[in-house]
């Protein structure tokens, strides 16, 4: 069942558990780039590993570190399976494209109204849809 839609995204279809964040995302400020674990004190996902998950962030912050960081996560085996944004910026997408990680943005409705962390979903960037897998 389709729960989220957005413009055409990047990358192949991916199926995994979703992790929803109410807080914004910055690679340099929020994440331990060695482990892929959210490390910033007080972040909604503090202590959560992004490895293998489809992750949702409402918005992003910060600079160009994201450009290389996703590729590094892939090499360490701790990369997310896909990343979904409300609003994103170019460096996040440049980094995800380099790393070959699927990505979408400008999804509607608010994922918190239709999904919970732990739900199993399939992201289909080419069609611009996110479906719940029951």
């Amino acid at each position: 069942m389709t729960v989220l839609t957005g413009p055409r995204g990047f990358g192949p279809d991916v199926e995994a558990e979703i992790l929803l964040s109410r807080d914004t995302f910055s690679i340099r400020y929020d994440m331990d780039r060695e482990t892929g674990v959210i490390s910033r004190r007080g972040h909604a996902l503090e202590g959560c590993s992004l490895a293998g998950k489809i992750v949702y962030f409402p918005a992003v912050q910060g600079g160009v570190a994201a450009g290389w960081a996703f590729l590094a996560l892939v090499h360490r085996g701790v990369a997310p399976a896909a990343v979904i944004f409300g609003r994103t910026n170019p460096v996040m997408i440049q980094g995800l494209v380099l790393a070959g990680i699927s990505a979408m943005h400008r999804v509607t409705p608010d994922p918190f109204t239709v999904l919970r962390s732990g739900d199993r979903v399939r992201v289909s960037p080419a069609r611009g849809v996110v479906e719940v897998v029951r």
Binding site: V64, N89, Q94, G95
Partner: peptide
């Protein structure tokens, strides 16, 4: 210009 990260 946009933000162009390292690889971009």
């Amino acid at each position: 210009t946009n933000y162009e990260a390292g690889p971009a």
